[in-house]
Write a protein that binds this DNA or RNA. Structure first.
Lengths: 159, 159
DNA sequence: GGCAGATAGTTTAAGCATAAACTTTCTCGA
DNA sequence: TCGAGAAAGTTTATGCTTAAACTATCTGCC
């Protein structure tokens, strides 16, 4: 299902949205793999954890990464095996465990983050600031629209 | 990495693009699963094949779905096992095989397509036509930008 | 205190996706 | 004509992802 022309605007829009996102994701994935031999989910996990110096629970990490908890189990296992994160049982709840960046994990993230930022900026380099802002705005509207479709009610919007 | 506020516009834009697309994809995936017990890749394959009455090669299908050929092998195997597609060796090239919809596959796609269309339209229901067109336009620009980033040159643009 | 139900996380089964190595077949030029 | 290299698919290894079933622990209420 590639960009057609006879379909409804919404269909073409969806295909273009999906196509653009996938193209960018593929490019970023390739850069991460080539330069740092890592993946988007691993980078995302480190990014989330970098904002929580005291760590967070597996459940919190799964919420922020917007994936299921079962997913996090394996991801954190692999990151821990590579020494990038540390886990300990939560002091107040023996069901829960707190995961946080190790020193090495923080160092690695600090090294990768500016490159990632640059790669993202490069992808949008041919767009003017006005175009970037217009796109940002319209994507906000799209997000609202999806929320309304899902819940029947819009959600509080910061941006 | 959820929508921040202190980051560069490009970063926030990327996160919002990824988040919006993923939210829509999750919604469509859930609908397809619930109503038709199928998946996006399977639906996409049927959609591509529905436009080629005489079928196409595995390689052509992989190009149109924008995934690797190795991926297609398994996907077509599963669709064939369910009787939705048929494969035969290409008459002029014994390396290649032609895959096309079976009668059942065509019937199934014809049944699903209008629902899929409706679900997509529902997701964008809270946006005006002007907004939809503005978003479509800006995504076209984004796609150009990614192409330029990748190849150094823009690509012919229909829409 | 103790039990019912909720919550945190893990496991399992299945599918999607990639890259890289591989097999088979084809093509083209010397 | 035949051989080198290209092209079509497949296989393999690895990782991401989900939904659903499961274990262990906690919480609140009687």
């Amino acid at each position: 299902m590639t960009d057609g022309e006879s379909d409804a605007l919404q269909i073409r829009l969806w295909l273009r949205l999906l196509g653009s996102t996938n193209a960018m994701e593929a490019s970023l994935r390739a850069s991460l793999q080539e330069r740092f031999a890592t993946t988007m989910p691993r980078f995302d996990a480190l990014a989330q954890l970098s904002r929580a110096p005291d760590g967070m629970t597996m459940g919190q990490l799964s919420e922020r990464m917007m994936v299921t908890k079962g997913n996090i189990t394996g991801l954190v296992e692999r990151l821990a095996a590579d020494g990038l994160v540390e886990r300990r049982v939560a002091p107040d709840d023996r069901r829960a465990s707190i995961v946080r960046l190790s020193g090495e994990g923080r160092r690695r993230f600090t090294e990768m983050a500016p490159h990632m930022r640059q790669w993202i900026e490069d992808l949008f380099a041919a767009m003017s600031r006005d175009e970037l802002e217009a796109l940002y705005q319209m994507l906000g509207r799209a997000r609202q629209s999806v929320q309304i479709a899902k819940t029947g009610q819009p959600v509080f919007e910061e941006g």
